[in-house]
Amino acid sequence: MIIKVTHMCVYVLDQASAYDFYVNKLCFKVHTDVPMGKGTRWLTVTPPEQPDLEITLFPVTEGGIFDKDAVKAMTQLIKGGRFGPAVLGCKDILATYEELKEKGVVFKKPPTKEFYGYEALFADDSGNWFSLTELPK
């Protein structure tokens, strides 16, 4: 029986810039940050109140499963906003929206009431988009 998600991967175009976005703007916590040689690092962050879910911020660079063509294709897809890796929950969507806007996060959609509940959409520094929703009180 599978119990939980322990790791998930978000492909990013620049790890240093992603670190700034996820840690300084979204206030995620750094779980592991280890240099792996050849200018790469194993960088994982966790949502502020979910310390056992590691999100790996993985750069789309040549090596491993990515050849030159794959890097080009992935870069285009990420920049073009084709990936929406997750839905992020918050206690108060209006306060979170105002705070993230203040920190320079670009929203594609302001908090809007949908069938599911209030939702806003924003993109990370690479182009991955996330849904921000308010958790049930």
Binding site: T6, H7, T32, M36, W42, T56, G63, G64
Partner: peptide, 12 residues
Amino acid sequence: AIPNCFAQSHGF
């Protein structure tokens, strides 16, 4: 610190 699947797929 790295699950093997990630270490392999990313060439570590």
